[in-house]
Protein backbone atom coordinates (compact mmCIF):
# COMPACT_ATOMS: atom_id res chain seq x y z
CA UNK A 1 0.00 0.00 0.00
CA UNK A 2 1.34 3.43 -0.86
CA UNK A 3 -0.49 5.20 1.96
CA UNK A 4 -0.91 3.71 5.41
CA UNK A 5 -3.98 4.85 7.29
CA UNK A 6 -3.95 4.53 11.05
CA UNK A 7 -7.05 4.84 13.20
CA UNK A 8 -8.01 4.10 16.76
CA UNK A 9 -11.09 2.51 18.31
CA UNK A 10 -12.30 3.07 21.85
CA UNK A 11 -9.11 4.76 23.00
CA UNK A 12 -9.61 7.48 25.57
CA UNK A 13 -9.31 10.97 24.03
CA UNK A 14 -5.83 11.60 25.41
CA UNK A 15 -4.47 8.34 24.03
CA UNK A 16 -6.15 8.97 20.69
CA UNK A 17 -4.53 12.40 20.51
CA UNK A 18 -1.18 10.83 21.34
CA UNK A 19 -1.54 8.35 18.46
CA UNK A 20 -2.63 11.12 16.14
CA UNK A 21 0.32 13.36 17.01
CA UNK A 22 2.79 10.49 16.78
CA UNK A 23 1.65 9.59 13.30
CA UNK A 24 1.54 13.24 12.24
CA UNK A 25 4.98 14.04 13.65
CA UNK A 26 6.95 10.98 12.70
CA UNK A 27 5.21 9.16 9.95
CA UNK A 28 3.29 11.65 7.83
CA UNK A 29 6.31 12.42 5.67
CA UNK A 30 6.56 8.74 4.77
CA UNK A 31 2.99 8.46 3.60
CA UNK A 32 1.23 7.55 6.83
CA UNK A 33 -2.04 9.22 7.79
CA UNK A 34 -4.13 9.29 10.91
CA UNK A 35 -7.79 8.88 9.97
CA UNK A 36 -10.74 9.32 12.26
CA UNK A 37 -12.85 6.61 10.60
CA UNK A 38 -11.91 3.05 11.55
CA UNK A 39 -13.43 1.77 8.32
CA UNK A 40 -10.70 3.55 6.38
CA UNK A 41 -7.89 2.19 8.51
CA UNK A 42 -5.13 -0.10 7.36
CA UNK A 43 -3.96 -0.34 10.96
CA UNK A 44 -6.43 -0.03 13.82
CA UNK A 45 -5.42 0.48 17.43
CA UNK A 46 -8.03 -0.98 19.73
CA UNK A 47 -8.33 -0.48 23.48
CA UNK A 48 -8.73 -4.05 24.66
CA UNK A 49 -9.41 -2.98 28.23
CA UNK A 50 -12.90 -1.73 27.43
CA UNK A 51 -15.86 -3.97 26.68
CA UNK A 52 -16.57 -2.08 23.48
CA UNK A 53 -12.94 -2.39 22.44
CA UNK A 54 -12.89 -6.10 23.15
CA UNK A 55 -16.07 -6.46 21.13
CA UNK A 56 -14.60 -4.51 18.21
CA UNK A 57 -11.48 -6.65 18.40
CA UNK A 58 -13.55 -9.81 18.21
CA UNK A 59 -15.54 -8.54 15.24
CA UNK A 60 -12.36 -8.02 13.28
CA UNK A 61 -11.05 -11.48 14.05
CA UNK A 62 -10.12 -13.27 10.89
CA UNK A 63 -10.26 -10.23 8.64
CA UNK A 64 -7.12 -9.27 6.76
CA UNK A 65 -7.77 -5.57 6.96
CA UNK A 66 -7.30 -3.58 9.05
CA UNK A 67 -4.33 -4.98 10.92
CA UNK A 68 -5.25 -4.94 14.60
CA UNK A 69 -2.98 -3.52 17.28
CA UNK A 70 -4.06 -4.04 20.88
CA UNK A 71 -3.65 -1.25 23.40
CA UNK A 72 -3.81 -2.68 26.88
CA UNK A 73 -2.59 -2.38 30.43
CA UNK A 74 -2.75 -6.16 30.72
CA UNK A 75 0.88 -7.08 30.31
CA UNK A 76 -0.05 -10.69 29.78
CA UNK A 77 -1.40 -9.72 26.40
CA UNK A 78 1.79 -7.93 25.44
CA UNK A 79 3.29 -11.24 24.41
CA UNK A 80 1.26 -10.70 21.29
CA UNK A 81 3.43 -9.32 18.52
CA UNK A 82 1.02 -6.48 17.92
CA UNK A 83 0.23 -4.96 21.25
CA UNK A 84 1.36 -1.82 23.01
CA UNK A 85 1.19 -1.18 26.71
CA UNK A 86 -0.35 1.70 28.59
CA UNK A 87 0.65 4.43 29.01
CA UNK A 88 1.55 4.85 25.38
CA UNK A 89 5.11 5.76 24.57
CA UNK A 90 6.46 7.11 21.32
CA UNK A 91 9.12 4.47 20.90
CA UNK A 92 6.97 1.39 21.47
CA UNK A 93 4.07 2.81 19.51
CA UNK A 94 6.25 3.58 16.50
CA UNK A 95 7.99 0.22 16.51
CA UNK A 96 4.66 -1.59 16.80
CA UNK A 97 3.09 0.42 13.99
CA UNK A 98 6.04 -0.41 11.78
CA UNK A 99 5.69 -4.07 12.61
CA UNK A 100 2.01 -3.80 11.81
CA UNK A 101 2.84 -2.37 8.43
CA UNK A 102 4.87 -5.53 7.97
CA UNK A 103 7.62 -4.06 5.88
CA UNK A 104 5.41 -2.44 3.30
CA UNK A 105 7.34 0.07 1.15
CA UNK A 106 7.88 3.27 3.12
CA UNK A 107 6.68 1.83 6.37
CA UNK A 108 10.05 2.02 8.06
CA UNK A 109 10.78 5.60 7.13
CA UNK A 110 9.90 8.52 9.28
CA UNK A 111 9.21 12.18 8.94
CA UNK A 112 10.43 12.83 5.43
CA UNK A 113 10.11 15.49 2.80
CA UNK A 114 9.61 19.11 3.66
CA UNK A 115 9.25 18.43 7.36
CA UNK A 116 12.91 17.48 7.70
CA UNK A 117 15.79 19.74 8.57
CA UNK A 118 18.37 19.75 5.81
CA UNK A 119 21.58 21.56 6.91
CA UNK A 120 22.68 21.85 3.29
CA UNK A 121 19.90 24.32 2.63
CA UNK A 122 21.12 26.82 5.20
CA UNK A 123 24.25 28.70 6.25
CA UNK A 124 25.15 25.63 8.28
CA UNK A 125 25.65 23.67 5.06
CA UNK A 126 27.86 26.42 3.65
CA UNK A 127 30.06 26.32 6.74
CA UNK A 128 30.17 22.53 6.82
CA UNK A 129 31.18 22.51 3.16
CA UNK A 130 34.06 24.86 3.82
CA UNK A 131 35.24 22.85 6.80
CA UNK A 132 34.97 19.54 4.94
CA UNK A 133 37.12 20.94 2.15
CA UNK A 134 39.62 22.49 4.54
CA UNK A 135 38.94 25.90 3.00
CA UNK A 136 38.70 29.27 4.69
CA UNK A 137 36.54 32.14 3.47
CA UNK A 138 34.47 35.13 4.41
CA UNK A 139 30.83 34.22 3.89
CA UNK A 140 28.92 37.34 2.98
CA UNK A 141 25.33 38.43 2.53
CA UNK A 142 24.19 41.90 1.43
CA UNK A 143 21.86 42.38 4.41
CA UNK A 144 23.56 40.43 7.14
CA UNK A 145 26.84 40.03 8.95
CA UNK A 146 29.85 38.72 7.06
CA UNK A 147 31.26 35.66 8.77
CA UNK A 148 34.91 34.62 8.55
CA UNK A 149 35.40 30.85 8.68
CA UNK A 150 38.90 29.64 9.50
CA UNK A 151 38.67 25.92 8.80
CA UNK A 152 42.29 25.13 9.59
CA UNK A 153 42.09 26.55 13.11
CA UNK A 154 38.42 25.70 13.55
CA UNK A 155 37.39 29.21 14.52
CA UNK A 156 35.10 31.93 13.26
CA UNK A 157 34.50 35.65 13.62
CA UNK A 158 32.15 38.38 12.51
CA UNK A 159 33.89 40.39 9.79
CA UNK A 160 32.64 43.91 9.26
CA UNK A 161 30.22 46.14 11.11
CA UNK A 162 26.93 44.32 10.80
CA UNK A 163 25.99 42.26 13.87
CA UNK A 164 25.21 38.57 13.67
CA UNK A 165 21.50 37.87 14.16
CA UNK A 166 19.64 34.55 14.25
CA UNK A 167 17.90 35.35 10.96
CA UNK A 168 21.09 34.71 9.03
CA UNK A 169 21.01 31.03 9.95
CA UNK A 170 17.57 30.56 8.40
CA UNK A 171 18.44 32.02 5.01
CA UNK A 172 18.83 29.68 2.02
CA UNK A 173 22.37 28.58 1.34
CA UNK A 174 22.28 30.10 -2.12
CA UNK A 175 21.90 33.59 -0.67
CA UNK A 176 25.54 33.75 0.41
CA UNK A 177 28.68 34.70 -1.44
CA UNK A 178 32.09 33.45 -0.48
CA UNK A 179 35.33 35.38 -0.63
CA UNK A 180 38.07 32.80 -0.55
CA UNK A 181 41.60 33.54 0.53
CA UNK A 182 43.48 34.87 3.54
CA UNK A 183 41.26 35.96 6.40
CA UNK A 184 41.60 39.22 8.29
CA UNK A 185 43.79 38.63 11.34
CA UNK A 186 42.45 41.32 13.64
CA UNK A 187 39.06 39.78 14.35
CA UNK A 188 37.52 38.45 17.54
CA UNK A 189 37.77 34.78 16.63
CA UNK A 190 35.81 32.20 18.58
CA UNK A 191 35.62 28.40 18.50
CA UNK A 192 33.89 27.10 15.37
CA UNK A 193 31.91 24.62 17.47
CA UNK A 194 29.93 27.55 18.83
CA UNK A 195 28.92 28.81 15.36
CA UNK A 196 28.01 25.34 14.12
CA UNK A 197 25.83 24.80 17.19
CA UNK A 198 24.05 28.11 16.71
CA UNK A 199 23.61 27.63 12.99
CA UNK A 200 21.81 24.34 13.54
CA UNK A 201 19.85 25.50 16.59
CA UNK A 202 18.35 28.51 14.82
CA UNK A 203 17.66 26.79 11.50
CA UNK A 204 16.37 23.51 12.88
CA UNK A 205 13.01 24.88 13.97
CA UNK A 206 12.07 21.68 15.75
CA UNK A 207 12.46 19.49 12.68
CA UNK A 208 14.08 16.11 12.59
CA UNK A 209 17.33 16.20 10.63
CA UNK A 210 17.25 14.39 7.30
CA UNK A 211 18.88 11.00 7.56
CA UNK A 212 18.20 10.61 11.25
CA UNK A 213 17.31 7.09 12.24
CA UNK A 214 15.00 7.32 15.22
CA UNK A 215 15.95 3.87 16.39
CA UNK A 216 19.65 4.70 16.78
CA UNK A 217 20.61 5.51 20.38
CA UNK A 218 22.70 8.63 20.81
CA UNK A 219 25.12 9.71 23.49
CA UNK A 220 26.35 13.18 24.34
CA UNK A 221 30.13 13.11 24.00
CA UNK A 222 30.41 16.17 26.21
CA UNK A 223 28.27 19.08 27.27
CA UNK A 224 27.74 22.00 24.92
CA UNK A 225 29.24 25.20 26.29
CA UNK A 226 25.93 26.63 27.39
CA UNK A 227 27.52 29.86 28.53
CA UNK A 228 28.29 30.53 24.86
CA UNK A 229 25.31 29.12 22.97
CA UNK A 230 21.58 29.70 23.35
CA UNK A 231 19.52 27.20 25.27
CA UNK A 232 16.24 26.69 27.02
CA UNK A 233 16.08 25.01 30.43
CA UNK A 234 14.72 21.81 28.91
CA UNK A 235 17.92 21.51 26.89
CA UNK A 236 19.94 21.33 30.09
CA UNK A 237 17.71 18.49 31.29
CA UNK A 238 18.18 16.62 28.04
CA UNK A 239 21.94 17.15 28.08
CA UNK A 240 22.07 15.90 31.65
CA UNK A 241 20.07 12.85 30.72
CA UNK A 242 22.33 12.08 27.76
CA UNK A 243 25.50 12.55 29.75
CA UNK A 244 26.81 9.11 30.49
CA UNK A 245 23.91 7.22 28.96
CA UNK A 246 22.63 6.59 25.45
CA UNK A 247 19.04 6.92 24.28
CA UNK A 248 16.97 7.32 21.14
CA UNK A 249 15.35 10.70 20.50
CA UNK A 250 11.99 9.32 21.54
CA UNK A 251 13.32 7.95 24.80
CA UNK A 252 14.92 11.31 25.53
CA UNK A 253 11.53 12.98 25.06
CA UNK A 254 9.81 10.46 27.27
CA UNK A 255 12.36 10.52 30.08
CA UNK A 256 12.83 14.27 30.24
CA UNK A 257 9.33 15.45 29.42
CA UNK A 258 10.66 17.44 26.48
CA UNK A 259 8.67 18.13 23.35
CA UNK A 260 10.04 16.17 20.43
CA UNK A 261 10.73 19.46 18.65
CA UNK A 262 13.04 20.45 21.52
CA UNK A 263 14.79 17.09 21.29
CA UNK A 264 15.33 17.64 17.58
CA UNK A 265 16.75 21.13 18.15
CA UNK A 266 19.26 19.94 20.73
CA UNK A 267 20.32 16.88 18.77
CA UNK A 268 20.68 18.81 15.52
CA UNK A 269 22.81 21.45 17.24
CA UNK A 270 24.97 18.91 19.06
CA UNK A 271 25.37 16.87 15.89
CA UNK A 272 26.53 19.95 13.98
CA UNK A 273 29.00 20.80 16.73
CA UNK A 274 30.34 17.25 16.82
CA UNK A 275 29.11 16.58 20.33
CA UNK A 276 26.94 13.55 19.56
CA UNK A 277 28.03 9.98 19.02
CA UNK A 278 25.94 6.98 18.09
CA UNK A 279 25.69 4.02 20.43
CA UNK A 280 24.85 0.39 19.79
CA UNK A 281 22.11 0.13 22.34
CA UNK A 282 20.15 2.20 24.77
CA UNK A 283 21.31 2.45 28.34
CA UNK A 284 19.02 0.91 30.89
CA UNK A 285 17.31 3.53 33.01
CA UNK A 286 19.03 3.99 36.37
CA UNK A 287 17.19 2.79 39.47
CA UNK A 288 15.02 5.32 41.22
CA UNK A 289 16.73 6.85 44.21
CA UNK A 290 14.87 6.91 47.49
CA UNK A 291 15.36 10.59 48.07
CA UNK A 292 14.82 11.58 44.45
CA UNK A 293 11.31 12.96 44.94
CA UNK A 294 12.18 15.37 47.72
CA UNK A 295 15.25 16.49 45.84
CA UNK A 296 13.26 17.10 42.67
CA UNK A 297 11.00 19.48 44.53
CA UNK A 298 13.98 21.35 45.90
CA UNK A 299 15.65 21.53 42.50
CA UNK A 300 12.45 22.85 40.95
CA UNK A 301 12.28 25.65 43.50
CA UNK A 302 15.88 26.63 42.94
CA UNK A 303 15.45 26.49 39.18
CA UNK A 304 12.41 28.73 39.42
CA UNK A 305 14.48 31.25 41.33
CA UNK A 306 17.42 31.05 38.93
CA UNK A 307 15.51 31.28 35.73
CA UNK A 308 12.77 33.77 36.38
CA UNK A 309 11.81 34.02 32.72
CA UNK A 310 12.00 30.27 32.24
CA UNK A 311 11.33 28.95 28.79
CA UNK A 312 13.01 31.77 26.93
CA UNK A 313 16.29 31.09 25.16
CA UNK A 314 19.10 31.98 27.53
CA UNK A 315 22.79 32.57 27.66
CA UNK A 316 25.03 32.64 24.63
CA UNK A 317 23.08 35.43 23.04
CA UNK A 318 23.51 36.08 19.37
CA UNK A 319 26.48 38.14 18.68
Amino acid sequence: MSTINVASANLDPEAARFVHSTVATYLSGAGWNFVSTPDLADILLVDLDTPAGASAWARLDGSRRPVRVAVTADHGRLASALAVGKPLRYSTLLSTLRRAANGEPGAGEVAGGASRFDPGKHLLGVIQGLVAGGRSAVVDHPDHAAVAIDSARRRWAVAGDRPLTPDIFRLPAGAFEMQMGPLPAALDYRPLEELLYRAAWHASNGRLQAGTDLSTPLRLRRWPDFTRVPYRPIHLRMAAYLQGRSATPLTIAERTGAAVSDVHDLLNACRAAGLITEARSESRPPPEQPSAASREGLLARIRMRLLGGAGKPRAGGDR
Binding site: P233, I302, L306
Partner: peptide
Protein backbone atom coordinates in the same frame (compact mmCIF):
# COMPACT_ATOMS: atom_id res chain seq x y z
CA UNK B 1 24.04 34.86 33.38
CA UNK B 2 27.19 32.73 33.16
CA UNK B 3 27.05 31.91 36.85
CA UNK B 4 23.33 31.16 36.61
CA UNK B 5 23.98 28.88 33.65
CA UNK B 6 26.56 27.00 35.69
CA UNK B 7 24.15 26.63 38.60
CA UNK B 8 21.29 25.66 36.31
CA UNK B 9 23.53 23.04 34.72
CA UNK B 10 24.40 21.75 38.16
CA UNK B 11 20.69 21.33 38.92
CA UNK B 12 20.16 19.41 35.68
CA UNK B 13 23.13 17.17 36.47
CA UNK B 14 21.72 16.56 39.94
CA UNK B 15 18.34 15.66 38.52
CA UNK B 16 19.67 12.75 36.50
CA UNK B 17 22.52 11.88 38.81
CA UNK B 18 22.62 8.26 39.89
CA UNK B 19 24.09 9.36 43.20
CA UNK B 20 22.13 8.48 46.29
CA UNK B 21 21.48 12.13 47.01
CA UNK B 22 22.20 11.66 50.68
Amino acid sequence: RHVITLMDTLLAALEFSTASAD
